Amino acid sequence: MIQKSMLTKEITQKSEWDEAIGLFQEKDIYFTYDYMQPFRKNGDGEPILFYFESYLGKAAYPFMYRDIAESAHLKGKIPNRTYFDISGVYGYGGPLVEVNPLYDFSSVIEILKHDFQEIFSAYCKEKGIVSQFDRFHPLLNTHEFFADYCTVTPNKKTICLDLKSVEFLTQNLTSGCRNKIRQAEKNEITVVVNDRVETLEAFKQMYHSTMTHNQASDYYFFNPHFFDDIKLHQSSHLIVANAYYQDKIIASALILSFDHFLHHHFSGSLSEYRHLKPNNLLFYEIAKWGSEQGYQSFHLGGGHESEGDSLFRFKKSFSKSEPKDFYIGKKLHDPVKSDFLAQIAGKFSNGPSDYFPIYRS
Results as ranks from 00 to 15, higher is better:
5 S>R: 12
12 T>F: 06
16 E>C: 04
16 E>P: 03
25 Q>D: 09
26 E>I: 14
27 K>G: 04
34 D>F: 01
35 Y>P: 14
38 P>S: 10
42 N>T: 06
45 G>P: 02
46 E>T: 15
53 E>I: 02
54 S>V: 08
63 F>K: 09
63 F>D: 01
73 H>G: 05
77 K>F: 08
77 K>T: 09
85 D>M: 06
101 P>E: 13
103 Y>D: 09
108 V>H: 08
128 G>Q: 11
135 R>K: 15
138 P>M: 00
138 P>S: 02
143 H>T: 00
145 F>D: 03
150 C>R: 11
152 V>E: 03
157 K>G: 04
159 I>K: 03
165 S>V: 05
167 E>R: 10
170 T>M: 09
175 S>C: 09
182 R>W: 06
184 A>I: 07
184 A>D: 09
186 K>C: 00
205 Q>R: 14
205 Q>E: 12
217 S>V: 10
227 F>N: 11
241 A>I: 05
256 L>M: 10
257 S>D: 04
258 F>D: 09
258 F>I: 05
263 H>F: 08
273 Y>F: 13
283 F>S: 03
294 G>L: 00
298 F>T: 01
299 H>N: 07
301 G>S: 03
303 G>M: 00
315 K>G: 00
317 S>M: 10
320 K>T: 14
320 K>W: 04
326 F>D: 07
329 G>D: 04
330 K>H: 15
331 K>W: 01
334 D>A: 10
336 V>L: 14
343 Q>I: 15
346 G>E: 02
347 K>Q: 14
353 S>G: 04
